[in-house]
Design a protein around this nucleic acid. Structure first.
Lengths: 316, 316
DNA sequence: TATACAGCATGCATTGGACGCATGGAAATC
DNA sequence: GATTTCCATGCGTCCAATGCATGCTGTATA
């Protein structure tokens, strides 16, 4: 039968490991008074520490010799090991730092299509500027975004998150609405855009990954209605060029729609059905809360979202 | 640009190194109450130790997850380093001599299933005779036996070792072949045991841990062939009893097979496929080369292997 | 839904052991 | 012999870690 108690642990619980720091000073200095000074304690305290070390090691460690103390054989034997151990402890306790400028590796970020289309350029720009050797992998979250965070498959997720489950942290990034976009002289602008007229028109859907239904179609499905998706393209700019030269219309996040509207070739209208408004948030696992690499990532994403908003606002 | 300032001596005087022992228990157990018990202290004391460790590391170390605490990224990073450090401290403090008769603690030895089945009884007998208070934990090596040695997770390993990497010492123990065993009046003995007839028969596999494929199946897989493993049992003697009363056959290390053949209820045959021959070696980390405890262990294992060979030879 | 249980964190009182001051003995130097 | 340096020890103080007690939170079960 297995017993969990291990010899090493039993011993170490009874040993004052802080004595090892004193031991190093004593063996280096070969003089209790100087070692005390180096340790920032009084000479009697250092003397007693030596006494305790002598008990622990069952060895004198420092013995009288010409000109004062010299190291015992055991002390000579122990000294290099002691150095290595304390060096190891130093590394263990070393400030946990992260330098984006030199960091390598890959960040895996979950984000829906349309949000990626508008936020990714800003995030990539920030990566290029601050973390040139850090790679970014943006993936549609699918059904299991939270699980991906929990299993460490993904580093963070940008999504509509109503409630973060236990162990998942969340921060609001920006609010989002859907708007309908059509070319400036579209025939449908001659009258009010009713739902029936909206559904009679032909639509472009922008889908970077081609995965999952567009939010509009989800709402329409709940109403028992459908629209004609004439075209589905992975590239926002392709969609813009096609819509500018046709009667196809697009329903997009307001941020993205505003970027297109700035081109003066488009008119932006509220959709003729309540698609609601939603908050895009950043989610990550609690495990990574204090990791410097992750702190930098979160700041980069938050800043990219702000860059995105201000870039659009300035252009208006 | 970040600079890592390493003022180890200044830092370590202010750090309670005794916390490192608590840290190991907490990270192993992922449960404050159990860690407390293991450390021989109350749960509140362990909780406060965790609090102090969180301050020292500026990291939560243990975070809420499904089913309780999980390790933070920082904790995962720190854990192997911590193990090495505490192992080093253990060695530092170890008595310059080792008396097996009074020694306590646990030896962790990596060894594959079938080798364990035949060597372990001899080793345990030696432990009972010479080191009655020293416990032995035999574990299947898995993929990372060498790493386990390097990280101090295991004390030694018995395995097929082609080349020992830097820092790992090796010593030959014994040579091993696989043979096929079947009951004395098995119908298959009426003719020559061809590979096809071998594969048509039903097989017992002895697997102490139930981990990993049997060597026969690995060779067969490379040939694009499979056999019918009718039964997989963890206990060699159960296998013997079943095989003695059925048409199931076993392919085992020759040492083990010979022990069963001595029972006169079995016939031992060469397998109808070249399973090769291999040398079992003992491997250990250079760090432990001169440690008296480890010297004794190595001698015990080598002697147990010789006991194993001579016990089988005498019985023939 | 209510109850029971497990686990973690914190308030409070206690105390053991490390600390510094003071001192004296031993050894070395002048 | 006097002086200085170093080490070890007596004594009193104090503080940080400890355990008991407790309450909150989350999970499982009836």
């Amino acid at each position: 039968m297995l017993y969990i108690v291990r010899m090493r642990e039993v011993d170490l619980r009874r040993i004052d490991l802080n004595l090892l720091v004193a031991l190093e000073a004593l063996l280096d200095e070969k003089n209790v008074t100087r070692a005390a000074h180096r340790l920032g304690m009084s000479q009697p305290a250092a003397s007693r520490a030596l006494g305790r070390l002598r008990a622990v090691f069952s060895d004198a460690l420092l013995v009288d010799g010409p000109g004062g103390y010299v190291l015992s054989s055991r002390a000579e034997e122990v000294r290099p090991m002691l150095r290595r151990i304390l060096a190891g402890v130093g590394e263990l306790l070393e400030a946990n730092s992260f330098d984006p400028a030199t960091a390598t590796g890959r960040i895996r970020l979950l984000m829906p299509d349309l949000q990626a289309a508008v936020l990714a350029p800003h995030l990539l720009a920030r990566f290029a500027r601050e973390a040139p050797s850090l790679d970014l992998d943006i993936v549609a979250p699918g059904m299991n975004g939270i699980e991906a965070l929990e299993h460490g498959v993904a580093d963070a997720m940008v999504a509509l998150i109503d409630e973060a489950p236990a162990g998942i942290h969340r921060r609001r990034l920006y609010d989002e609405e859907l708007v309908t976009l059509m070319r400036a002289h579209h025939p449908a602008l001659a009258g009010k855009l009713t739902l029936d007229r909206f559904l009679a028109l032909e639509h472009i859907v922008v889908s970077v990954t081609g995965v999952g239904p567009a939010p509009v179609d989800e709402v329409l499905a709940r109403m028992g209605r459908t629209r004609r998706v004439k075209l589905r393209v992975p590239n926002f700019f392709a969609a813009v060029e096609i819509a500018a030269r046709s009667d196809l219309i697009m329903t997009l996040p307001s941020g993205l729609a505003r970027a297109a509207a700035n081109m003066r070739r488009f008119v932006s209208l509220p959709p003729p059905l309540d698609l609601g408004s939603f908050t895009m948030s950043l989610a990550w696992h609690a495990r990574q809360q204090d990791a410097p690499r992750h702190i930098w990532l979160r700041r980069a994403i938050v800043t990219a979202a702000m860059d995105m908003s201000s870039a659009i606002d300035v252009g208006r």
